[in-house]
Structure formats: C-alpha cells, structure tokens
Design a protein around this nucleic acid. Sequence first.
DNA 1: GTGGTCTAGACCACA
DNA 2: GTGGTCTAGACCACG
Lengths: 133, 133, 133, 133
Amino acid sequence: MLIRIDPQSPEPLFEQVVFAVKSACAKGILAPGERLPSVRELARDLAINPNTVVRAYEVLERDGVVVRRQGAGCFVSDRGSDLALAEKRRQLQESLRRAVTEAFHLGFQAEDVKKALAQCLEEVQFESKRRQA
Amino acid sequence: MLIRIDPQSPEPLFEQVVFAVKSACAKGILAPGERLPSVRELARDLAINPNTVVRAYEVLERDGVVVRRQGAGCFVSDRGSDLALAEKRRQLQESLRRAVTEAFHLGFQAEDVKKALAQCLEEVQFESKRRQA
Amino acid sequence: MLIRIDPQSPEPLFEQVVFAVKSACAKGILAPGERLPSVRELARDLAINPNTVVRAYEVLERDGVVVRRQGAGCFVSDRGSDLALAEKRRQLQESLRRAVTEAFHLGFQAEDVKKALAQCLEEVQFESKRRQA
Amino acid sequence: MLIRIDPQSPEPLFEQVVFAVKSACAKGILAPGERLPSVRELARDLAINPNTVVRAYEVLERDGVVVRRQGAGCFVSDRGSDLALAEKRRQLQESLRRAVTEAFHLGFQAEDVKKALAQCLEEVQFESKRRQA
DNA sequence: GTGGTCTAGACCACA
DNA sequence: GTGGTCTAGACCACG
C-alpha cells in the first residue's frame, strides 16, 4: 500500500493523507490519470473515518492534484497548478524560508542545506508536468 | 521594531511570532545573549493579547531558541539545538522534502528550486552559531 | 440578516451559503476586512448543522474570498484570486457560455442578454479589488 | 462528430452531454427537427455507458430541447421553452448573476465582462428559434 | 468565545 | 460499486 499515516502525529490525519498523496505523485509512484483508492477502501486500510479521507481528497482536488468524479473515483490530475506565476514563486520562497530558518537553528551550514536539497530533488521525478501559465 | 506579523494571515498569531523571532535570529538581527522585548511591550507593539506572546515565548524556549529568566526577561540562547546529529539530519530532510514536494506540484524544475534556495540562504547571514559534528 | 438559503432548493446547502457570501461581497454588503457571522451563529440562524457552515467557509477560503483565523473568526479577504490570468479568463468564458446557452434555449436575443448583463453589472459594486497577477 | 466530452472533468458525464447538445443547438450545429445519434451510437462514440446517454436525453426532453419518439429516435425540438416570460427573465437574470459574481471575485472589470459576453454571443449563431413576447 | 478536527452513521446521485 | 451531502455530537487549539 502506498499511503501511510501515523495516528500518533500531531499533524491532522487528513493533512497526512494529503501530503502522502502529493509525495507519491512527486516520486512517480502515482502517475497522472491513475486512480486512487476509493474513499471507503482507503478509510478501511488506514483505519480512519471515510469522512476524513473525503476531506483529504477535497483538499487534493482544490490543490489541482486530483480530480474526483462522482460514481467513478478519484484520479491523479494531468494538469498542474492554476496559480499565477508570482503566487507560485511566493509559495516556493515561503516554504524554503521555513526550511532554511529551521536549518539554521539546527546548526547547519549553507552547504549542508544545499547538499540535503540536492538529495531530496533526486528522490522525486522532477519534471514539470505542464506549461507555465 | 524587529518583529512583524500579519493579522490577516490564517497562521496562528503565536506561531507567527515564533517564526519571526527564529527568522530574526537566523538573519543576525537578534544576536545570542540579546534581550527580547518584554511580553507586555511586544503585545502592545503588535496589538495582540499578552497571553499570545507568552505562548510564543514558551514555544521558543522549548525549541531552545531563547531562555526566559524570571524577572529579567527573555534572551536569545547561545546554545545550539542539543538533538543528536542523526535527528537533526532527519528534521532537515523532512522540511526540505515538504518544500520540494510543493515545488513539484507548482510546476517548478529542479534548477528553479536550487536557485530559490540559494536566494533564501543569502537572505540570512548563514553561519551556524555552534558547529556540532 | 444578510445570508439566506432555501432548504427546498436542490442546490447543496453549503453551496448556497458560499454563493450568498460571494454575492454579498460583490454587492458591497460585505466589505474587505469585515467579519462574517461565527460558525455557530450562522448555523443557528440558518437552522443548519455547524459542520455545513464550516464546509462553506472552507470553500470560501480556498476561493480566496475569506480568511479564517482560529479563535478569532472568519473575515472577508482583501486580496483577490491568485489564479493565473489565463485561468481566470477561462473561468469567465465558461460561466458566460453557460448563461448564453441557457438564454438561447429560453428564446432570448443577443440584445436581451446584453441588456440583462448591464443590469446585473449595476447591481454590484464593480471595481476590481486588486492588482492583476 | 458533433458532441465531445471531457472524461477528466469533475462535471457528471450526463450533464456534459446535456450541455454539449444544448450548445450545439445554440450554435446551429443541430437544427430543429434534426435527429440526434442513437443512444447506443453516442455511447460508443463517447466511450461511456448507454445508461448515461439515456439519462442525458431524458433531461434534454424534460428541458424541452429534444423530443424522443419511441422506435424513431431523438429529435431536436422546434418548440421554444413554454415558460412564462417573467420566469424566463428570472432564469436569465439568475444565470448572469452567477457569472457576474464570479467575475467580480476573479478581479474583472465591468467592461471585461461585457467584452467577454459579446465574444460568447458571436460564437453562437444567436437567433431565437421562436420569438415569444 | 472562536475555529479545527474527527467520528458515526444516514441518505442521495452518478456510472 | 463510486463519490456527495448532511446531521449529530465529541474533543482540541487559539485568542
């Protein structure tokens, strides 16, 4: 099974599911067009309430990662984010700033962070999915 | 004033304060040993509830960023994180993985992310407070 | 009270709330920065479940219409949509195409539709809230 | 082939078929009296379940767009909507209000909306099938 | 007080 | 079978 969560984590369950799916997409484990587990199936496998899975799938749809089709299932989207480029850049900067600030307080040097990033980038199949708007 | 928050942001106020202080430390705006504003002073400046500032300072102390001394105030710690190196590495990887996964879904290329990281690193005067191998 | 819904309508309750809020914003009844009724309050007034209101507020937040701040309330956002211009245009075209197709089947002429649109436009305080990204 | 649908869209398949037929009528691609593809034929062409096509044709008949004749097929109606004028006006206003409200939140100006409408109107050969005052 | 998360279980709509 | 909506009610987190 491709999606796992930790019920002990302080991170909300539905957010753990969201991140797990996004991560699987980035790593190529889930390809565009592929079908995700059904709501009930995933809920059973993760031992959580179906509503929590629904919630996660809703967030994934709003983020442009999946499309949900009534009666059919939930599928990995083949389109990318519809945000304006400026907004995309803002979000990228923000998430990196967080990581960098944490790295500083952990005592890492700039070079350490760059190396760690390079390693992360290798883990994902890093090719932009589609045109930049 | 060194700390700013955005009351419009959905991010909890105390977390904004926590991040702002951590960020100021990373940028060298706050040096080790330096005294932070008093709870009442900061609460007045930011126009927020003193309890919210107390909460932020508590979290900062728990994270090893500041030390609160009874009656004297709250000071930037000169100690680094006391976590084991392996645990630090894990945390760094995790925060970068988040950023990288988001970047993928925003449609960025590996090079874009590296450039953005370099820019972030330049924004902070990136020298570890204490090197810990 | 500014928000009303019709429990008989086939349109989902939460969507009715979403549209009512968007409409109130467009008409200037709700100004940027203004606070919406609390979840419990609105649920009581509309005689629906609080979860349904939460759902509506979530959708409004994802659409950039409001920001929800834990412990504080739900406020009309002063920022606009973060979508790429191309995507905005696509959405505008799509919603107009629907309206135009319906108008045709109702037997209206092009001029009728234009006049009706002019009337709708007058009903709203039609000034773009912010810069185009 | 005159009808196309997008299996990726979250919109229900039968609704896509309904809209595609209405749209084809408005554009003059389907003329009054003309015969639509048979249920099985269309289902095969669109690679969807025949039941879905049946459902779409039912809705189209209910909306007065087509007439289904037992054993003969499904034909574009030559009658207009038989609603009262006041009700038609109300429906037109409502669909435009939706579009206008969305346009506001997308940051468009009144002029933008008018231009976009004019473009939509040109796309369809806009002459009412039957004038009904 | 506010919103945020989660569960349990009902009933409806789509394919 | 699938997802979509809604209710009821619990408990947690923020200000």
